[in-house]
Nucleic acid binder design. Structure first.
Lengths: 334, 334
DNA sequence: ACCATTTGGGTAAACGTTTACCCCTTCTCT
DNA sequence: AGAGAAGGGGTAAACGTTTACCCAAATGGT
């Protein structure tokens, strides 16, 4: 069987309490006992039992995280940043994939609550349907939303200013002479889709550009970008620019355009959102909106830790400014 | 405070033992008590404490997983498959990123062991240096390696047959008339890099093709693919085909070739490995070797569960056959 | 009608820690 | 030298479950 603190104490000839004190690095224990206990622990290969400790201490040193789809490269980027940051404080990450399904999301939230995670970082699937899961969780554990948020529910959030991000792309392509624009994005379930869509409309209005261009709303996946490209092509006339809701869509769309001998940026400008790892490797490299993963992760954990320290803090919504990354999918138009 | 089983028992007017029996669905408890307890639990919003349960039962219903780099899209694909499969058995995933560093990997392994995970799924960073971490873990918890393995160490493994996969690409391009081939891959630290390299050499030998082509070994990242492309271009003469160690490398390489007006597949054939999500979206779409994620994940869990059930099972190494996916990066050569 | 068996449910121990509380030394200060 | 403080270390309770063990009642068979 596994060696416990009792074995260590016995071997060192001290009480369990003393062994514990040594092993947790408490003061008030004489140097020779520290040596004896440490020695015994080393000899026996003692490892503390985190489960027992968690039960006693009432804190698991674990943070739960739920993302809609690990396969979408934007989320691993966030997960990676969060995980790295957690490691520096000796905590681990319990990761769940809600598979874009509010019901699964709900069950994952409860599972993490049951596991007594110290806090929860969630990218809610839906702006409306993720409501109940959040509500349930919030009574049990500190929670912060990242990237997306749910409507009409007061919980911390940190994310990029989606409206601003999209405006930047719209203004950018407008400055290059684009007047007619299509948007290809996801259906308006998530806050991300909603805000990006809203940003698109507002920017067009502000610039006095026509509002009657196509709005193709599907999912945040490349396959949808491909399908949407087909639809645009079938409609007969291409707009001056296609603003995509994220990079994955743009990638799929670029592929389909290429297959149809449409040249980007000469025939149409294309932009994405997220600046995923492959955005600079597409053909042509994709103009997009960069999300600062590290900053998002660190802000999220800052918020979470603040709330862990004090549960009844006022709700904060931190939106960080994204930055436009201009690449060839909009350059060299002239 | 949180509501415990004691509260439920009190409210239902039964002993804690009975409440527990009801809530864990044991037999031997009368129908009306079941009703009373369930009712109380519902009323009070009782959730069992998984930490306490784990301590008592000696099993956490948690599986740990360590990958070298979540950012590399191949790993999220595996993680996603594993996680989905775990959900069906009510278990959760404790995910760690070893950041390609054996030292970090070692500390993550121990952290997961401390947390009493029921089992460990690991993609070892290095074929040699991950040895100590594995050795330590194996005494504590069932463990299965996935994708990569460590040398000279008997632990379960499931992965794709790397040599076979690479052979398929080599034979494929050879059948298209390629005689000189370069390999662009990662340094031979990991079993994946090793086996793919070996497969490359063996295939060339078997086919009687020249063995003196360039072997550029760096990392499994796109940036390295880009740099390697530069080196190949500077060397003056391009080979007939470039066999890449994974898709990420191929993506970076394709980008750089394009920038230099090298046409693929007309001027050179290019292949990848993994069939990541974006392999069919590159320009041109990438011929590659598909890894069956779902199958790998399910085999890994099967192995793990078998070993959880019985620790002293004979070690198994399951290699599944990969399949070549031919796309335009090698087609239309003629 | 009596014994043997089953069924239902309570008592308490156990899982491996941490820590409040207490006691005994050993200082330090007057 | 005596009182008080401080340091060191042991005892035992607690964290929230599950479950072995036990006893009482009910059931069934003769």
């Amino acid at each position: 069987m596994a060696v416990t603190i009792r074995d260590v104490a016995e071997q060192a000839g001290v009480s369990i309490a003393t062994a514990s004190r040594v092993l947790t690095g408490s003061k008030n224990v004489s140097a020779d006992l520290v040596a004896r206990v440490d020695e015994s622990a080393r000899e026996l290969g003692y490892r503390h039992n985190a489960v027992a400790r968690a039960l006693r201490r009432g804190c698991t040193n674990t943070v739960g995280m739920i993302v809609p789809e690990i396969g979408n490269p934007f989320f691993p980027a966030i997960v990676e940043a969060v995980e790295r940051r957690l490691q520096t404080t000796g905590r681990d990450l319990l990761l769940c994939d809600s598979q874009q399904d509010p019901a699964i999301e709900h069950s994952r939230v409860m599972a993490l609550v049951d596991r007594q995670v110290d806090g929860l970082i969630i990218v809610p699937v839906s702006a409306t349907e993720s409501h109940t899961a959040m509500e349930k969780a919030v009574g049990h554990t500190p929670i912060v939303q990242i990237d997306r948020y749910v409507e009409e529910f007061a919980a911390d959030w940190v994310g990029v200013d989606d409206e601003l991000g999209i405006s930047q792309t719209v203004e950018h392509v407008a400055s290059l002479g684009a007047r007619t624009m299509a948007m290809v994005s996801a259906t308006l379930d998530s806050s991300a889709a909603l805000r990006r869509h809203a940003g698109f409309e507002k920017a067009l209005t502000r610039l006095g550009l026509p509002l009657d261009g196509p709005r193709l709303l599907g999912t945040f996946r490349a396959e949808w970008g491909r399908v949407a490209a087909c639809q645009l092509l079938e409609s007969g006339s291409l707009p001056d620019a296609i603003i995509c809701g994220n990079d994955e869509i743009a990638v799929g769309l670029l592929g389909e355009l290429r297959r149809n001998q449409i040249r980007v940026p000469q025939d149409v400008l294309v932009t994405g959102f997220d600046d995923i790892r492959f955005a600079e490797m597409t053909d042509p490299p994709l103009t997009t909106v960069r999300q600062p993963h590290e900053q998002l992760a660190s802000e999220a954990l800052r918020l979470l830790d603040a709330r862990i320290a004090q549960h009844d803090l006022p709700v904060q919504r931190i939106s960080v400014a994204p930055s436009l990354v201009v690449r060839q999918s909009t350059e060299g138009h002239a």
